[in-house]
Amino acid sequence: MSTLQGWPDLPDDLLHSIVPRLGSFLDLLAFAAACSSWRAAFSSYPSKHTLLQMLPPLLLQPDVHECPPRPRPFSNSLVPTHSCHVTDLANQGTYMRCQIPRFSPFGESKSPQSPLDSSYFGGVSYGHLILFNQNQSCLVIDVFTGVSFSTPKLPVDENTFLDHASLTAPLTSPNSYLMVTKGRHYFFWRVGSKSWLRRSLHNGTIEKVMVFKGQIFGMDNDCRLIIMNLVPRIRIQKITVDPGESMHNKWHLPHPWLVACGDMLLLVGCHRSFPSTGDTFEAFRLDLTSEPAKWMKVEKLENWAIFISTDDRSQPLCCMNPERWGGRSNSIYFYFHDSNNWINFELDKPLQGNASTPTIFICRGRASMMQPTWVVPSMFYS
């Protein structure tokens, strides 16, 4: 009869009963980092998808300067690195930072030379930072473990500046592709393969990409919706969508976000490109049961909250029942540069400032450097 020798020998069923009682991603990361047997138990936990819905994503803040004496609980193997502050809304009293690769857009003239000095930001997807480099390949780095890999060279000219990169599924998925866009061209690399596949649209430039229920949706610069299927072969088609009575026309929301929120694919935005004091956010749900498809007005997000990053190429994330950790349902969370902190809009209600911050202006766009970004560690997708 075997006996327990210590904490690492606790049975999986007992460890599995502990996991849902941990109230933040930081606690869960610490649990998985305790020892190899606990990490294996977490990997085999059958309801990680539920954890993804119940906890707020972590906020990476590369623009927050850190004090050197602080501990570094997470670091990766790529050097030199840039210290990145991490905020967990469910555990704000705990200090944390990670080390992300230093590449030229950080613009620190006194920093050590890096082999990534010719690289620039492509996106954050499924817990991975994606960089483009000068030789037209991609470097994919796990934000918290530092595990990385490079792709084959893309079939583009040397001076081509690529737009956007994202994974179509977690790396553990058998059908995980890295998708790169450049104007109306899509490039697909099946993880582990030796070459890229290329597909093109007849017109339009892809600006938004979102994975929803195993399918990839995109939106071009003319607010046209696109759907992509990868199996059994890559196929791209445009979807005719009726803007509906509430939306008036497809330009009702300039520069909106595509958001996968539970069983809804949403179009979220306000009437100005840069949200600020007095602006009101609206949301519309895609109804694919009608012919043609329609955007239907959503009055409330019910028990959901949405998290939108500063860089448009980072996919929005969602959380259910945010009141569990002190958040607010029916809200949209952004990063507010002036305070180095987050701020939230309530859907369909004008954003109001306060005595300390009477005027609020939310920056957004695309840059070569990494912007504050909401992210979920990759281990929760495995």
Rank of each mutant, 00 (worst) to 15 (best):
Q315M: 12
G269L: 02
P254L: 08
H255W: 13
P243V: 07
G244M: 04
S309E: 01
R272T: 14
L286E: 05
V259Q: 02
H248S: 11
C319S: 14
P316K: 03
P292D: 08
H248Y: 11
I306A: 01
G244N: 04
D311S: 12
F274T: 08
V298D: 05
A260C: 08
K297H: 15
I306M: 07
P256E: 07
N303L: 07
S276G: 15
T277C: 07
D263H: 11
I308N: 02
V259R: 02
S273L: 11
I239C: 12
L267G: 00
R313S: 04
F307L: 07
G262L: 10
K250M: 14
T280M: 11
A283M: 08
M247V: 05
L267W: 00
W257F: 13
V268P: 00
R313E: 02
T277M: 07
S290N: 09
M264F: 04
L253W: 04
S314W: 00
P254Y: 05
S309A: 08
P243D: 06
L301I: 10
R285Q: 14
T240D: 13
A293Y: 07
N303Y: 05
P254D: 09
W257I: 01
H248C: 13
D311A: 12
A305C: 14
I306S: 03
C261F: 04
V298M: 15
C270D: 03
T240Y: 05
H248F: 11
P322S: 08
E291G: 00
V259P: 00
H271D: 13
K297G: 02
E282T: 06
T310G: 02
D263Q: 12
Q315N: 09
S309K: 03
M264V: 01
Q315Y: 00
W251T: 11
S290F: 00
M247I: 01
D311Y: 04
I239Y: 05
T289K: 12
D311E: 11
T280S: 12
S246M: 13
C318T: 15
P254I: 05
R285K: 15
T310N: 04
G269C: 04
T289W: 00
R272M: 03
T277G: 03
W257C: 10
I308A: 00
T240H: 11
V241H: 03
S276E: 13
S290A: 13
L258V: 07
L317Y: 06
T289E: 13
H255Q: 14
N249R: 11
I308H: 04
E282I: 01
Q315G: 00
E299C: 12
W251I: 06
L253M: 09
L267F: 01
C261P: 00
P292N: 09
L267P: 00
L258E: 05
S246G: 08
V268K: 02
L288Q: 15
H255L: 15
S314V: 15
S309D: 02
M320S: 12
K250A: 11
L266R: 09
F274S: 10
R272I: 09
P254V: 07
P292F: 05
L266S: 05
K294N: 09
N249G: 08
L253V: 09
M296H: 05
D287S: 10
P292W: 08
L258S: 06
G244W: 01
D312S: 14
